[in-house]
Design a protein around this nucleic acid. Structure first.
Lengths: 193, 193
DNA sequence: GACAGATGTGAACGATCGTACTATTCTAGT
DNA sequence: ACTAGAATAGTACGATCGTTCACATCTGTC
């Protein structure tokens, strides 16, 4: 009972690390087995298909994301503080894995490949964007943000600068990436008042 | 003389189409040869290595990008009109290939893979961002944008909403993606005054 | 301590990958 | 028309891919 679950979570964490760096295409059963110290077929037996493995990895990422980003934010006061908390936690989240946010890392490679894996990613992304929009909506209700603010547009604007940070930091290695993000977020909050 | 160049450009356009959809990992010599109707080795002889092919594809993308986005923008009046032209042309550019902007499509998959291909992409991305920053700087000098605007920050903010559009449109298939982008761009211009 | 089921191994499969090599077919310049 | 060289084809190579299957080992329960 215990043994299987243990190695399975070991596998998934190793896989998540790989995915954050090399994407889903960079995750092969043979290489992963070698990393974890299992035989190829031994690892395969845990998932029975590559697709199942990929989804299990994404589910693991979602679980950690909720634990590290969403849950702590929900403990903050409703409204603007909660929005700020999401931003702050997301910043930490991006640094947790060596390749940055795995969702962003794989979104471009998967956006033209229909299937279960894509559906899963799209679903979780929409959940997250709805969480942001809801937080913004609450901030409006609390009187922190202006009444005519469009929460969906806020979610777009917010996620855009997050994507920008990933791009400038991970690809361009721009040492100013953090400052650029902070400035952009500050401006977004300012315009939401 | 002519024959070789012809088939080579045919190959590169087909390859660019594939890359925009499936990324660089999705570009295999065998599949590409089949698409173009050549033998694997016949196609290979044009580039002598996969890496060379990848760079040639990126160079092709850069050439088209300059022709369709940059050059027309430079014909617009200096300052804000030119900035708006870049935005408009970029919008068309994203629709040119079936998988959207190839640079965005491959940036996440390549950001942890050091090598010539990555260097090429980073270089061209920096060129483009500098072009945006320069356009913004000119807009400041022309009195269109406010004097204390940071052109580099403007480039970040602008590119962020472009990345956002790609994400919302290509991955999430959000029918509102275009409106979201237009709103965000409008707000960006407004805040730059 | 034996037995059953969970867990892991090893070898093999067909497919595809990038690359190298030789041998053709085509094309352009004379 | 002839010929040199470019352009393309054909075949084979080692490697890796996901997957299957028969077999071994471990683990926990009675």
């Amino acid at each position: 009972m215990t043994k299987g679950k243990d190695t399975k979570s070991t596998i998934l964490m190793a896989a998540l690390t790989i995915v954050s760096q090399a994407g889903l295409e960079g995750l092969s059963i043979g290489k992963l087995a070698q990393t974890v110290g299992l035989s190829k077929s031994g690892l395969f037996a845990h998932f029975n298909s590559l697709e199942n493995l990929q989804i299990a990895v994404l589910q693991t990422a979602v679980d950690i994301f909720i634990e590290k980003v969403i849950v702590p934010a929900l403990k903050e006061p409703r409204g603007e503080p909660r929005v700020r908390a999401i931003s702050k936690n997301l910043f930490e989240w991006e640094k947790m894995l060596p390749g940055g946010c795995p969702f962003i890392s794989i979104s471009s490679e998967i956006d033209d490949k229909p299937g279960i894996v894509r559906d899963f990613l799209v679903g979780s992304q929409k959940d997250f964007l709805n969480a942001i929009a809801t937080a913004a909506q609450i901030a409006v209700e609390e009187g922190h943000f202006r009444k005519d603010l469009d929460p969906q547009q806020f979610a777009y604007d917010f996620y855009a600068i997050v994507l920008g940070h990933h791009h400038f930091h991970r690809l361009l290695n721009d040492p100013q990436a953090n400052i650029r993000y902070i400035n952009a977020f500050k401006a977004l909050i300012h315009n939401s008042h």
